[in-house]
Amino acid sequence: MSLEPFPMTEAALEAQWPTIGQAGDCWSGAERVDIVAEARAAENCSLCARRKTALSPYAVEGTHDTATDLAGAAIDAIHRIVTDPGRLSSHWFEQCQEEGLAPAQIIELGGIVATATLADTLARALDRPRLALPPVEAGQPARKLPSGLEIRGAWAPMVVPERAEGIMKTMYEGVAGSAGFVFNVVRALSSAPSAWSLFLQTFLPNYATSGPMPEGGLSRVQVELLASSTSAFNDCFY
C-alpha cells in the first residue's frame, strides 16, 4: 500500500531534487547525478557487504561494484558513506584527501549522498518508486570556498557563525534565535554551500527542534524517539 508524503515534504523534494543536476561548488551537474547513481549502486556492492561485516572496514581489499566513471577515491567515499557511515573517522577524511579529494569535494559529495539517502529511504518507507535521476544541466562548478571556514567542532572545515554571509548568515541567525546557538549539524556542510542548501532545504520540512508539530501527526516525544532510534541503528551519535 503506497502512502503519500506530507505536501511540504513532497514540495521540497520536487524543488530540490532537480538542482542535483546543476553544477555545484566542486562537481559538475553530470558528476553530481553520477554521485546519486553511485550511491544507489553501493547498496548492492559485494565489497561493501564484506567490509560491513569485517572487524575493520579497512581490512578488506577489493573492487567496488560501480555504476559510474567517477574517480576511484570518490567512488570509495560514496560507498562508505552509504553502507557504513557509522565507521567513518578523521582517518578516513584524511585518507580521502591523500587520494586527491579536497575537503569541500568530500563535503559536497556527502551532502548529495545524504539527500539521496533521505529521498530513497522515504520512497522505500512509503512504498513509492524512487525518484528518477535528475536531468543534467550545463555549467561549471563555482570552485570558490565560502569565507569564514574554520576547523572547530568537526574534522571538516565549517563556516563559523560570526563570519557567515548571505543566506547562510540568515539561516544561522534563525537557528540561534530559537535554540540559542547554531547546531554543529546545521554548519556541517557549510564548506560546500550548494550541498548545504540542497540538504537542509530537503530536510527541514520534515523536522524541527521547535515550533508546532504537524496537525494529526506524532507527538514531540514520539518524534524524538524515532530520530534517536534511527541514529542509534545507524551507529551515529547525532
Partner: peptide, 25 residues
C-alpha cells in the same frame, strides 16, 4: 507517514554528521 518522514530525514542527516565528523554541541 510522519514516522516514515522522520526516519528518512534522520537516515539522511546521520550521513551529514558522519561525513563532517561533527562533535556534540
Amino acid at each position: 507517514v510522519h514516522a516514515c518522514q522522520i526516519v528518512a530525514a534522520f537516515d539522511g542527516i546521520n550521513r551529514v554528521a558522519d561525513v563532517a565528523g561533527i562533535r556534540t554541541d
